[in-house]
């Protein structure tokens, strides 16, 4: 699921710090923004926009953090509004709902642990690529310049 790979170049200390901050910031934003699922995405997007002129390593990790948060938004939003409709309308708790919330919880916990792990590794200058997101990020984020 998580691959430790060699980056195109050896990232400097300041790059590793900023890249690691993009993951840490998303963690803090999740905790501060609970139960709203969009806060962390907006925070990661602002951080990404702030660093879009940064070095390739920083941009790459900001993009990976942003992509992972984007997929979380769809899954969590659906669960959030489903819960709201159960609380405030006539809808009942069904087996489907319990299964969905359980799956969402597993997905969130996995993402949370992966984010913590990536933040720690990236801080030490180690390049961490996630399954699917890593490949997608490489396609989106151009080394350019």
């Amino acid at each position: 699921m998580i691959n430790l790979k060699k980056f195109k170049y050896e990232p400097g200390e300041h790059e590793a710090e900023t890249a690691s901050n993009s993951y840490l910031m998303s963690l803090i934003a999740i905790i501060m923004g609970l139960p709203l699922p969009i806060i962390n995405l907006i925070a990661t997007l602002i951080f990404y926009l702030g660093n879009r002129k940064g070095t390739y390593f920083v941009r790459w990790h900001c993009t990976q953090a942003l992509l992972s948060q984007t997929s979380m938004l769809f899954i969590n939003s659906y669960g959030f509004w489903w819960t709201i409709s159960i609380i405030f309308s006539d809808e009942n708790i069904s087996n489907n709902y319990i299964a969905y919330i359980f799956a969402t919880l597993i997905f969130n916990v996995t993402e949370f642990i992966a984010t913590i792990y990536t933040a720690i590794k990236t801080r030490n200058g180690i390049h961490v690529e996630w399954w699917f997101y890593g490949t997608l990020t490489t396609l989106i984020c151009k080394s350019g310049k």
Partner: peptide, 10 residues
């Protein structure tokens, strides 16, 4: 509150 969180890190 979101910008504030982002600024803590940047």
């Amino acid at each position: 509150g979101i910008w504030t969180i982002v600024d803590w890190f940047s």
